Amino acid sequence: NNDALSPAIRRLLAEHNLDASAIKGTGVGGRLTREDVEKWLAKA
């Protein structure tokens, strides 16, 4: 759900042209964290 994304995470996803639904969030309530996105980028 994009409503649950912080502005910083939205920007990070946009910079790398990523789809938030492709990344499993580990934050509160399954929210994406910066670490989630960075780990996903490291694997890609």
Rank of each mutant, 00 (worst) to 15 (best):
R11N: 15
R10M: 10
L12D: 02
N2R: 07
T26M: 04
P7K: 09
S21H: 08
A4S: 11
P7T: 09
R34H: 11
E38W: 13
A4P: 12
H16R: 04
D19Y: 04
K24G: 07
L18V: 14
A8L: 08
I23S: 01
T26S: 10
T33W: 00
V28E: 14
L5E: 05
G27Q: 02
L5T: 05
I23V: 06
R34A: 12
V37I: 14
L18T: 05
I9A: 03
L18I: 15
L32V: 12
D36S: 00
E35R: 11
L5N: 04
D36G: 00
A4I: 13
W40L: 13
T33M: 05
R10F: 06
A22C: 07
A4Y: 14
S21W: 08
S21Q: 10
D36H: 00
D36K: 00
V28Q: 13
A22K: 12
E38K: 06
K39V: 10
N1A: 14
I9N: 01
G30T: 02
A42D: 10
G29T: 04
K43W: 12
D19A: 07
S6H: 10
N2G: 13
G27E: 03
L5D: 06
L32R: 02
R10L: 15
L13F: 06
V28P: 15
R10S: 07
R10I: 15
L41Y: 07
L13K: 00
G29L: 06
L32P: 06
L12E: 05
D36Q: 02
L18Y: 06
D36I: 01
K39G: 09
L41A: 04
L41N: 01
L12T: 03
A20S: 07
L41R: 01
L12P: 02
G25I: 03
G29E: 07
S6E: 15
K39P: 05
D19S: 09
G30H: 04
W40M: 10
E38L: 15
L12R: 02
K43V: 13
K43D: 14
A4E: 14
I9T: 05
E15D: 09
L32H: 02
D3A: 11
A42F: 09
R34W: 14
E15W: 14
E38A: 08
A20R: 06
N17R: 08
K39Y: 12
V28I: 12
L41K: 01
K39T: 11
H16Q: 03
A22F: 09
A42I: 12
A42N: 10
E15V: 10
N17K: 10
H16G: 02
A14Y: 09
